[in-house]
Amino acid sequence: MSSDLLANALVRERGYEAVAIQADELLYSLSSSEVDLVVIGAEVNSKSGDAFELVETLSQAYPNANAVILLNQTSNESVIQAFRSGARGVFSRQQPMAEFLDCVEHVRKGFIWAGREQTNSLLQALKSIPAPNPFTAGTSPSLTARELEVVQYAAKGKTNKIIASELGLSEHTVKNYLFRAFEKLGVSSRVELLFYLTLKGHTFSASRIESVDETLVVE
């Protein structure tokens, strides 16, 4: 789905005023006109920027402009990162156009939108997080300095290979640190880890797994 195709569909099917622009023109366009919603396209391994960081900048500078991130491929981690960066909707290019139109319609009305599969995964991850212990509220399991460092990298969406390279460790060692940290925190996956850290008030910069390819502005 190209940005021009999406913009034309919104004009034709919903009667919106829509225009496709490049990512580097987004903030300038927002400064000169009122925009209700922005759809930011992302491509894996693109060099043109970072979709998550752009959404984060957008949500801080223009809080009234709701954002949808359009991904080539969605994973549980990328969906969580998208919402944590400030997006109110996440859409996969593999989904049909009719669902994209529904996504835009819901987000423009102030709702949160994700595909059925992603929603089910997010709900399952939330259910898997241990309930807070009222007798230890405000406390966290004790992680070693290295375990915490590895967990922070994992929370940014980095793979074990990248973590190992940046920290000068082997992938096997990184895997062991994560395993011990997961046991202490009571989580079983990176998705649950992201939810746990978010609930505990931890903040991390957005991941660079996905990067900007195109931007659609809906006025």
Rank of each mutant, 00 (worst) to 15 (best):
K200E: 08
R146E: 14
E210M: 04
S170K: 11
P130A: 06
A67Q: 13
A145V: 12
E105H: 12
V44R: 14
E214V: 06
S189H: 09
E147S: 05
N133Y: 03
I40G: 03
I112K: 09
A42V: 00
E171C: 04
I80P: 02
R84M: 00
V90W: 01
L194Q: 06
F204Y: 12
G89H: 09
G168H: 05
L71E: 01
L126D: 05
E25R: 11
C103W: 10
D102C: 04
R208D: 09
Q81S: 07
P134I: 12
Q94I: 11
I209C: 02
M1V: 10
Q73W: 06
S85I: 07
G86I: 10
K158A: 01
S46P: 02
A181G: 01
A131E: 14
L70H: 09
L26W: 03
P63T: 13
F195T: 07
S48E: 13
L126T: 12
K200Q: 12
Y196E: 08
G110L: 00
L167K: 00
A137M: 15
E214P: 02
A145S: 12
E25W: 01
P96N: 09
S207H: 03
E219C: 12
L10A: 07
G110Q: 04
P63F: 05
R14E: 11
L143I: 08
F182C: 04
S33T: 13
Y196R: 15
E117F: 02
P96I: 12
P141W: 08
A131G: 04
N133T: 11
I21P: 01
L194K: 06
N45I: 02
R116D: 06
L27Q: 08
Y16P: 00
V35L: 07
K184M: 03
D24L: 07
Q22F: 01
V107A: 07
A164N: 03
P130L: 08
S33I: 10
A61K: 14
E149L: 07
A18N: 09
L26H: 01
S29E: 15
S128Y: 00
V11M: 13
A82M: 07
S188Y: 05
L10S: 03
G115M: 05
M97Y: 00
H172D: 13
K127V: 06
K175Q: 13
E192S: 10
Q22A: 06
V212I: 14
G168W: 03
S75M: 02
T215K: 02
E25L: 05
V11S: 10
K156M: 13
L178K: 15
L26A: 04
Q152H: 14
I163D: 01
Y177E: 14
G86H: 08
T173M: 05
L216N: 06
Y177C: 08
N64W: 05
D24P: 01
F135G: 07
F182S: 08
N8M: 11
S140E: 15
A98R: 15
L123D: 08
H172A: 11
S207W: 03
H106G: 08
F111S: 06
T144S: 14
A23D: 07
D36T: 13
K109G: 00
S59F: 02
Y62A: 10
E77W: 02
A7N: 07
K161Q: 14
R88T: 14
D4K: 12
